[in-house]
Simulated assay, not measured.
Amino acid sequence: MASKMSDDVSKRCPECNSEHLVKDYERGELTCNDCGMVLEDSIIDQGPEWRAFDSEQDDRRARTGSPMTFLSHDKGLATEISWSNKDYYGKRIPHKNRAQIYRVRKWHQRIRVSNAAERNLSLALQMLNDNGAKLGIPKDIKETAALIYRRAVEKNLIRGRSIESIVCASIYAACRMINLPRTLDEISKASEVNKKKIGKAYRHLAKELSLNLKPTTPYSYIAQFCNKLELDKQAIVVSEDIVRKSIELGISSGKGPTGVAAASIYIASVMVGKPRTQKEIARVSGVTEVTIRNRYKEISKHLGIPEME
């Protein structure tokens, strides 16, 4: 007899007040495991009518499809023909049929995009996916960026501006919302779009969509820069401690967060015995060596750290 235990906190046995209930799908009964009382005699099995003995069987037999995603212009709800030359059973399609399958696939791709608006959205989301992959950002940030772009399209904020700049601005805003910021220089380099255009598009989106994002802090960049410089956890902790003291003393007020983070990492790397040059830190942080040097001198002076130059 196939039975399954369930600790259903929403149901208790009226006889003994026990929460240990047993669902017997073979008999369609819900019984108390402690006193044996039958609570229901016609429960419905909500599971599938098939069994799978491994993950491959589960994927092959499941009929629910992939989850909805904002990264596709049709939200992933349309049918998609695979580009692999294999049929449903995994067998290779004969050469004589491949030309026909190619034509079907091509026309299927065309009819998925029915008008100019959908074509614009499809192109923009493909661009967003590509730029997100280059930046190495996780899927949840790309989903958020896609949602921001869709809101911009709905409010007609794209008119008069390039798709590339709005896509990059959406990624920049999404990164700040998830608190995993990327600098404008990083996004500009990955997308090959002018940094000033991205900044202008971002300010436009922030104003029209009322994003109300808080300013980034040096803390947001410490782990990211340290990972690129191959510095360990100890360097991250020391860098964050230097940033905390700098904020408490008001040294970072009015200064760019990336510059303060870069200078803190420069000091911390020497303190933990794994020094990095200002040139190396400037390369990964996107700020100039002069900026790092200026922030370093200010922090060293106020925190009483001896000169390292």
Rank of each mutant, 00 (worst) to 15 (best):
M1F: 00
A2D: 04
D7P: 00
V9Q: 02
E15A: 12
N17D: 15
E19F: 07
K23F: 09
D24G: 01
R27W: 02
G28Y: 05
E29Y: 06
L30T: 03
N33F: 08
C35Q: 07
C35K: 07
L39D: 06
D41S: 15
D41C: 03
S42G: 08
D45R: 11
D45V: 03
Q46R: 08
G47F: 12
P48V: 08
P48A: 10
R51V: 14
A52C: 14
A52E: 05
F53L: 12
F53C: 02
F53N: 15
S55I: 09
E56N: 08
D59L: 14
R60Y: 12
R60V: 02
S66R: 14
S66V: 09
D74V: 06
T79R: 03
I81R: 11
D87H: 04
Y89H: 06
G90K: 06
G90F: 05
N97F: 10
N97Q: 14
I101C: 01
R105N: 13
W107L: 15
Q109C: 02
I111Y: 10
R112E: 12
V113D: 02
S114R: 12
N115V: 06
N115M: 04
E118A: 15
R119K: 13
N120K: 13
L125E: 08
M127Q: 15
G136I: 09
I137W: 02
K139Q: 08
T144I: 01
A145M: 01
L147W: 02
L147E: 07
R150Y: 00
R151Q: 13
A152P: 04
E154G: 01
E154F: 09
E154L: 12
K155Y: 10
K155R: 15
R159H: 11
I163V: 11
E164F: 00
I166L: 13
A169M: 06
A174K: 06
C175P: 03
R176W: 00
M177V: 04
N179T: 08
L180T: 01
L180S: 05
P181W: 10
R182P: 00
T183R: 11
T183L: 09
L184M: 13
L184A: 11
D185N: 11
E186S: 10
S191M: 05
E192G: 00
V193L: 04
K195V: 11
K196F: 05
G199Y: 09
K207S: 13
S210F: 11
P218Y: 05
P218C: 10
S220T: 12
Q224W: 02
C226M: 01
C226G: 01
L229C: 03
L229M: 13
D232L: 05
I236W: 01
V237K: 14
V237A: 14
V238I: 15
E240Q: 15
E240H: 13
D241M: 12
I247Q: 11
I247K: 10
S252Y: 06
K255F: 03
T258Q: 14
T258S: 12
I265V: 13
Y266L: 11
Y266D: 03
A268C: 06
A268D: 06
M271Y: 03
K274Y: 05
K274Q: 15
P275M: 07
R276A: 07
V284F: 09
T288K: 07
E289M: 10
T291I: 10
I292R: 03
K297C: 00
I299W: 00
I299T: 00
H302M: 12
L303W: 04
I305W: 01
E307G: 04
